[in-house]
Design a protein around this nucleic acid. Sequence first.
DNA 1: CGGGATCCGTTTCGATACTG
DNA 2: CAGTATCGAAACGGATCCCG
Lengths: 134, 134
Amino acid sequence: MREKTERIVREWGDACDAEVSIAVLGGAWKPSILSLLGEHEVLRFGELSRLLDEPTARVLTRQLRELEDDGLLIRTVYRQVPPKVEYRLSDLGRGSMPLVDALTDWGGRYAAHQRGELERLAAEPETLDAAVAR
Amino acid sequence: MREKTERIVREWGDACDAEVSIAVLGGAWKPSILSLLGEHEVLRFGELSRLLDEPTARVLTRQLRELEDDGLLIRTVYRQVPPKVEYRLSDLGRGSMPLVDALTDWGGRYAAHQRGELERLAAEPETLDAAVAR
DNA sequence: CGGGATCCGTTTCGATACTG
DNA sequence: CAGTATCGAAACGGATCCCG
């Protein structure tokens, strides 16, 4: 477990279980990484990088390492030249897929709703802000 | 919508919907705030503060304002002395409850699992690390 | 190919003090 | 009661360069 995750798990066993989920899944690219590994079973570092929008290696590496430390995925290193590293979901990682899907679903609906709001505002001849400005 | 949320909603309409959810729900106390408002229907600022673990007013205020800006809750100010401010869920906020519950459930199961691992490790006479050290 | 090292700007959290 | 103002510390994402 990462130190951050462990701190949350130990210290506030109370009502903040949801924050545990966010601590584990809440990094940049993390839900996407888990989704992709849910679809593809096993992926190499470069494959993951290409399937995501080419984050810097530094960032992708850290997200992968954190997910590994938190027990969601398994990293397999083949000691050869050139190197080959494979990532796949652990049981814990597979267990997170329904939650990741729920995050994706709600986020998609929320984004669609808000894009609708934005368009509605843009289509209006006069916004509230403009009216208030006078 | 907060600027941060709007940026994510507009710019990457692609596969990163889950990150939208995390952008909206991922602040300190936010899931707890939503859960409490799901249970209590309406709460005042001080009541929320007491039900949570008394975060600083600065922090609680900002989380509430962000949730309001993102459209999840409704803030009602009664212009009187002493002031009275009520918070309740919007329709959008009520729609987030299943996701918040899913976050809570998985986080709770994850925490329980990891606490089990921690105890198991503590109970072992010799850890893998100690064995490898020799 | 799959990173590690270093550096940096931004965001976020939180403490403290003060206020209409 | 329900904040606001100011400040500091830390975490985070990202760019750049280097390596076995």
